[in-house]
Structures are given as structure tokens and as C-alpha cells.
Design a protein around this nucleic acid. Structure first.
Lengths: 235, 235
DNA sequence: CCAAAAGTGTTCAATGTACACCCATGA
DNA sequence: TCATGGGTGTACATTGAACACTTTTGG
């Protein structure tokens, strides 16, 4: 809430950074781009960019997402994550970055857009492990995004955002197992999700794409909260 | 994550706004200040102000809090809430505001500091009801802060941040009842909080300040998460 | 004595957990 | 036929909900 002060307000650059998560090959993965320019030239970073004049924060995040993935109407979840503004987090100038969290189904290979020299999915384990060297404070931002996703699928129906439009109970369970890194009992999981009203809507179809007995296909239901929550084993 | 672009980045003002909550007279209340200058001169608003050059966001929030309350070392909880940056949210210029949530015990009467013309506590019911007319988009920010507080005391030990250093189980229960606006069973509540390991640490003392049989005094324990969570009646 | 708040015990229902078991497909 | 994943039934332990009851103060 600004109030006029004797000195002029200091000007800041404002950017949005995106933590775009998906589940690929049984691993929680994040979208990264290779920086084409200094600082951190050649390093991997989260996608993002400056907020434009007259542009809202969420609109800026959606625009950057479309630019980086090359897709326009994505079936994704987008929410604000947190804001990072330590002095010195960008060596060039004072920049405040509003981070957004995006949960997406396994997407086609990313098409680098804008001024990025490359784009790829990497498992968050690699990105945050010893080998990972993300530019700026992006490791910290990614950590926060992963933690948010891990805790939020406990008590919301958000895990379905990682699944394609139609999915099976087993596929949804593998999302939980990948994000949490644990094994869940398939039978109790099935009862839990099918027993929660308005969580899953059967489409009538079935599939055998996972092998074994044909599984029913579902769409996301209208329920947004999962009550009682899915319990995460201690791991 | 900034990248150089052909056009210069647009400069933004960056502020912090504070949602300072406490429980007074059985009502969840927020700290507001009366604006001494336009725009919204004379209107009530959340405390806040510009982030200074070279100052971190959380540091700016802590500074503003100290300035507005006149107290320095407060036994409070402070966490980032969300960031609001719609174009036009401030009529003078483009401003992005990082909101912080503060939970405090019932404090001495606020001392207006800085350029505020007054400061007071008001129940959030009044502030957000028909009569409430907060400046800027502060009603929206306050709503988000209240919702965060309401949901967070479910699964964390944060409710104790509303209590003085030493408190009774009954006082803690009244915090939950005030924040949620429901009645809880005193007996089951007692069992729940005293049965959660490291949530409450008995100090050995007792008090009769609430009348009736003397109650044990406790301090906050080291546990930060409440598992299983406190269940909020549907209300 | 009575009112008020603290604290304990007990019972019942709901829910999670573990696991035996059957089903329907592809190879 | 067998392996694989889908799906149901059931017994047991844990937890929350409701509430009767005792304890210890102040007025």
C-alpha cells in the first residue's frame, strides 16, 4: 500500500518465473530452459520473463507459459506460488520475481520459444540434487513449488491436473506415487478416490493401455477438496 | 528470471502490505491504519509501505510492523501471504504489493507511526462486511489472509501464536473458536492438544484468570505440524 | 452451596490398514 | 495358461464424537 514519501520510490524490475511440473516416466519433472544470454549463460533456469506494462501478474505467467511450451489452450492448473525479492538475487539490478506453479499432464516435447537456447524436462531429483545447478535462486523456487505440489495433492483433487483428460484410477495412483515417492495400496486407493463424491466422473469408456484387465476411464469431477485427505505414508 | 529484451523493462513500485491478525474479545481482528494522504485519504487501510533500496521483502515487512505497532521484538509469526499486482490497483502508478501475514497475541493499543493518521483494531467481520470500506484492494488481501489463518491452524500449531507466552488449554480453544466462529467440545479439545507430542509444554504454573477450577499453564512446544489435524466443524 | 471452568473415562460410529480373493485382458 | 493390472470383501486397529462424571476454584 503505497504512501507518498519524501524520497522517490525505488524502481524495481518485476518478473514472473514458472515452476512447471509434470510426471514423466514415473518421476516428477520440471520444465527448464537453457539461458542464451548472460548472466548464467548456458545454465539451466526456470522459464520466465518481465511483466509488461499494463499486464497483470497471472496474465504474464500465462503468456510466458504459452511462449515456452508453444501451446495455447493448455489443460493445466496455474496458481501463484510465492515472491522472491532478495537484493542481489539478480546480479544486474533489483528484481522482484513472482513465482507461479503450473501442474500439467505429460506434454509434447517443449519447443523453446523467445530467447531461450533450449528447453527440456528434467526430474526434480536431478535438478535439486548435487549435479543440479539452476541459475539465480531458481533451485530454491523449484523446491518451494515441489513442496507445494506434494502437500496440496493431499487435500485437493489437484493430482488429476497431472493426468490427461481421461485417465484410470491406476494412472492417478501412479501420479501420487511419483510425486510422493512412495508406494500406495492399489485397492485402498481405488476405494478412496471412487468413494469421494464428485471427485471422479466415469466416462463409460475403458482402456487396457496399462496392460491387465481393462480399467474404467474417468474425468476430473467438480470436487476441489479431498475430505478426508489422502494420507501420505511417512516415507 | 529476467532476460534482456529489446525494450527496457518497465519500472514498478514495490510495497509490502501487512495483514496483522489477533484475537480480541472473542473476535478475530485486524490492524488497520487511517490514511493521512490521498488517495483514499481518511479511509482505513492495511499498514504497509514501500520496500527500500537494498532491503529484503521480509525485512521490509518486519520494519513496517515495528513502525506501526511501536514494538520491536514482538512474539509474532510472520509469513509471506501473496502478491497483488493488477494494473490499476493503485491509481497513481504501477505498484506490486507483497502481502505478509502476521499472527500476534492481543497487543497493547497500537501507536500510529509514520504517516498514518490513526491506528486501531477492528473485527474482520466488520471490515469485510457491508460497512467495511478498505482502501485499494485491501479487502481482498485481508480476505486471503483470514482464509490462510483459518486453514493453517487446522494442521499446524500456529494458533498458539495468538496466545500470550503462557496460556491455558481453554484459552487456546477460545482462539480456535474465535477464528473459526464455531464451538468446540472442551473435553475432546483438551485431549487432542495435550495428547499431541511436543505441541504443548507445561510450565508447572496454574491460573484461575478464566474463573473456575485452576488450569495448567503451557508454553508452545517444538511441534510445528498438527497430525492428525484439528477438524473444523462444517459450520 | 452453587456456578463455572478444568479435566478424565467410556461408548459408539467412522475411517484407515492389511490382505485374501476374484475378474478380464494380452501374450 | 500365465502374468498383469483392475476391482471387491472383510476383519482389525485407530480415531473422532458425544456425553456422563469428577475436581477445584470463586462468590
Amino acid at each position: 500500500m503505497p504512501r507518498s514519501e519524501t524520497s522517490l520510490f525505488p524502481p524495481f524490475g518485476v518478473t514472473v518465473d514458472l515452476v512447471v511440473l509434470t510426471v514423466r516416466e514415473h518421476a516428477l519433472s520440471a520444465l527448464t530452459i537453457r539461458r542464451g544470454e548472460p548472466p548464467f549463460q548456458g545454465a539451466w533456469a526456470l522459464p520466465g520473463g518481465f511483466v509488461r506494462e499494463g499486464e497483470g501478474l497471472e496474465a504474464a505467467a500465462a503468456r510466458e507459459l504459452a511462449e515456452e511450451t508453444g501451446l495455447d489452450r493448455l489443460p493445466v492448473h496455474l496458481e501463484q506460488l510465492a515472491t522472491f525479492g532478495d537484493p542481489g538475487r539478480d546480479p544486474r539490478m533489483r528484481v522482484v520475481s513472482v513465482a507461479y506453479l503450473v501442474l500439467a499432464p505429460d506434454l509434447p516435447a517443449p519447443r523453446p520459444g523467445g530467447d531461450a537456447a533450449g528447453a527440456r524436462w528434467s526430474s526434480v531429483g536431478e535438478l535439486l540434487g548435487d549435479g543440479g545447478r539452476l541459475a539465480f535462486d531458481h533451485a530454491r523456487i523449484l523446491e518451494d513449488g515441489v513442496e507445494r505440489a506434494r502437500s496440496k495433492i493431499e487435500y485437493s483433487s489437484l493430482a488429476a491436473a497431472f493426468c490427461p483428460e481421461e485417465f484410470t484410477v491406476g494412472e492417478l495412483r501412479r501420479v501420487y506415487e511419483s510425486v510422493w515417492g512412495v508406494a500406495l495400496d492399489p485397492r485402498n486407493f481405488h476405494r478412496k478416490v471412487t468413494g469421494t463424491p464428485d471427485f471422479l466422473v466415469p466416462t463409460g469408456g475403458t482402456t487396457t493401455r496399462q496392460g491387465g484387465r481393462p480399467a474404467q476411464l474417468f474425468r476430473r469431477g467438480s470436487a476441489e477438496k479431498l475430505n478426508p485427505p489422502m494420507l501420505r505414508p511417512e516415507a
